[in-house]
Design a protein around this nucleic acid. Sequence first.
RNA 1: GCGGGCGUCGCCAAGUGGUUAAGGCAGCGGCUUGUGGCGCCGCUAUUCGGGGGUUCGAAUCCCCUCGCUCGCCCCA
Length: 423
Amino acid sequence: MTNLKNLRGMVDLLPAQTLGWQKVETIALEHFSRAGLQEIRTPIIEQTELFLRGIGENTDVVGKEMYNFDDRGGRPCTLRPEGTASVARAILQHGLLNNGSQRLWYRGPMFRYERPQAGRQRQFHQIGVEFVGFASVMSDAEVISIAWEFLKEVGLSDLTLEINSLGSNEDRNIFKEKLKDWLNQRFDFLDEDSQRRINVNPLRILDSKNTSTKELLCEAPSLNDFLSKKSKTRFNYLQELLDNLNIPYKINNKLVRGLDYYSHTAFEITSEHLGSQATVCGGGRYDGLLSELGGPITPSIGWAIGMERLIILAGDKILQSKSPDVYVIHKGEKAEQLALNITCQLRSANLTTELDYSGSSFSKQFKRADKSLARWAIIIGEDEVSKGQLLMKKLRDNENKEGREEYIFLIEDLNQIINQLID
RNA sequence: GCGGGCGUCGCCAAGUGGUUAAGGCAGCGGCUUGUGGCGCCGCUAUUCGGGGGUUCGAAUCCCCUCGCUCGCCCCA
């Protein structure tokens, strides 16, 4: 074995997995097209400043998880830790909003320098949706429903949707101050992490997993009580819309997303089957992001799904590989060219075809044909070549284990025969 | 960044100081020189993540290191 290995947290997708990924990606493409979304692809490397301004310098993602480096020209660069900031940047840079609001989706690798564990890697893949330039609560509901229906279409169940409203920036700033006061009065009872966060990112303390802090927080002021009338009405209407769509949800007043740019709607879709990294989809409204990056005030909402987590939840079923329609068996020098020829013809006729060129005995080749789970075998030996014929045998007929059907036909009749025999 | 667990063939593993490192799956070959799914037979680790040390002797004990994994933090 070579001592060259992949970097920690970077994962190879082997042939046994890629089919499942392809299936999910195909479902996504179709699902999003039907919803009128267009795909956008942005570079995986950006100027570091984009993320500093977009995500927030005090977030963990920016503070300790980014892959930063200077390029040969000395420019500070970062491997993107998430997709939204890049999408926002591209929209502004190319003036896409001049053509109206944008309904977009993206997919691709993201990078965060963290300690890997179940459902968490340093290079991971997200598939995400961004509705840029939409203020209507209806867009919140539609964006959530696109995620929900997509996950259902992939076959996931036992999912929980949690929603919360972070209110407007003004609502949240008032609340932050009140919360800080309250926490400072109880400083000694907080866990170390939470103590550190009071001035940096007090909202995140609400989401603490520390048991004693959690208990203490039951009495804490709730963001909900600080929402303006307008924000409350908005949140209530979102719930009404979700009810109308029959999408079940739970309100979680402690739900605060980790990135600075969120306001109003925040949501997460979680599963109990993922271990401690339970979130499969996270998103929310980011009305302030584009203006933060120097663009116009642009109300927007989006989400991202972790592909690896999605694949874990989809389970083995989605990973099963496709078996060939036909397995081509041949023996003898004269049969080689014909076998290759027939294989290509079958593929032109849209049949999945596997060609055996081991040159081993017919018995061995049949064994492999059987193992491949092919439905049919085409056998080409010396006899067939000299007579201009092909022999075809049905392999997967559990009724007649002894006398499986065999057909002999002329090579020039190949196309007719395939149409008759195979579906 | 901090804690716990683990590293023996492609995969799953037995072995816990003493001659050639079990076994199963997968792979390859044969029984069967043109017919599969069962069965039987054979082959496949000079080596136990790597490096040092202790010992007459180490996969087994000690030290260091690397990696994996689970959890914390955080997030998808």
